[in-house]
Design a protein around this nucleic acid. Sequence first.
DNA 1: ATGTCACTACAATAGTGA
Length: 258
Amino acid sequence: MKLATYNVNGVNGRLNVLLRWLDEAKPDIVCLQELKAPDEKFPRREIERAGYGAIWHGQKSWNGVAILARDRDLRETRRGLPGDPDDSHSRYIEAAIDGIIVGCLYLPNGNPAPGLKFDYKLRWFERLQSYAAELFELDVPVALVGDFNVMPTDLDVYAPERWRDDALFRPEVRAAYAELVAMGWTDAIRSLHPDERIYTFWKYFRNAFARDAGLRIDHFLLSPSLRERLIAAGVDKFARAWGHTSDHAPVWIDLDDR
DNA sequence: ATGTCACTACAATAGTGA
């Protein structure tokens, strides 16, 4: 079973890119981030025509997350991360699919740092840690998937020194990610490719993709029982090379069918 | 500091978030 994540950077503006990638990559489950569309403008018909059922949590202009599934029941188990009833951003949606809990998340960017946005990012990360601990206790297969907006280590940044003060790489944020992983989660991509430079995002600026000046910020965290089923992982860089494409590439893992 | 996108609105350019 192929589980993928894709920050589409506008689900309507990039609809052709998304549909082309679905057709070529044929993932079974997809977590989408940055829909940048309210619920009523989610392109449900086009996605259904491509063979996918979907749940989504949209918002005007910014954020927005969705989960797609092909030939599988998709039962929504949560929308919105617990811990702050005043949080109005659409950044978390979760479903039970094929006996797996899939949590699709879009962690705040947090720039500029320091500042209110960075504080919000750290608070959001704390809430994610608390909720992830709850999920972990359930002892069921769980995948926390999406755009975490954090590069875990120097190996995940083309030029670490230039990113030290950025909200995606500051020590507090890397520490929060490390604490989360240390609860017992497995960073799927890194576990299969411990020494490889793997990027999932390249800025639009300065020809970053052609120079491979990238960042690894889209991640899969697997609970212990899912980790055992992990077969392969990769980045669909070919989709980042297309015209009018997202600044992220789709990322995927292959899980043994049970 | 720069660069490039998408989306939005007291809309045909300027803001904003990334």
